[in-house]
Design a protein around this nucleic acid. Sequence first.
DNA 1: CAGCATCCCCGCAGATACTG
DNA 2: CAGTATCTGCGGGGATGCTG
Lengths: 140, 140
Amino acid sequence: MAVSTVSTNAPAPASAPVGKYDTGGEEMCPYRLVLEHVTSRWGVLVLIELLDRPYRFSELRRAIGRVSEKMLTQTLQTLERDGLVHRDAKPVIPPRVDYSLTDLGREAAEQVRSLALWTRDRMEEVQQAREAYDAAKARN
Amino acid sequence: MAVSTVSTNAPAPASAPVGKYDTGGEEMCPYRLVLEHVTSRWGVLVLIELLDRPYRFSELRRAIGRVSEKMLTQTLQTLERDGLVHRDAKPVIPPRVDYSLTDLGREAAEQVRSLALWTRDRMEEVQQAREAYDAAKARN
DNA sequence: CAGCATCCCCGCAGATACTG
DNA sequence: CAGTATCTGCGGGGATGCTG
């Protein structure tokens, strides 16, 4: 499938300090970056949650559980920048910001969700495989 | 979709020092762990490559590129333990070990690949979204 | 409430060296 | 060749504090 890591020898990381959430600063094929955003620890969960409905920031935080505010912010920003998540900040006090999926994001989210569901459904088999593996190991 | 992180308050991490590649030592719903294995940086690439055909260790290393030997080993072990990858060590000298997908692994790999392909196909839109985002940012 | 800035720690992951 | 074992760094990510 050709997922080479090297790809173009980009002349410069001259662009904006994309800095945050860049999982692997070296050069690699650009789509791999997006893939990593989508499959990232919190990215996965955010996408899945947003598939149900729009969420406010802290709603999302509670829904996912165990995300630091910082990571959630970072994740949302990355996904927003990639055009997967839409951020709607109402100019009211106290601030209210709603996050939702774009059309693009919905496509990604659906795939991610189906992978998550698959995983959940196959847990039993995985569990058995693990026991077999561990047993075989222990036998040494 | 209920992807709560807390899940069961497992009485003990008493089990084997699963240690390696455990992404998040605290308690969380077990299937999330498998999902993280599958969507992990190298897990994704390994699964995709193996979808084509079985690979030997260093073949795989070259095919993926930029994986340290150590991470590849860890990834393969994790996936093997989860029953997604089959390890076939021929008792010859020099050693020869072939890695391939199990049926379970193939199911996972296909989903991962389709996600990867989707990402690749949507790069253009993502790129545009990014430019729009960055432009809007800069305007402040 | 949303989110930025800072500080800081732990563990992922790379590099290196050694073994069967 | 296919791993293990050990050391180390550096950055992911949590905690805390402050602003609009």
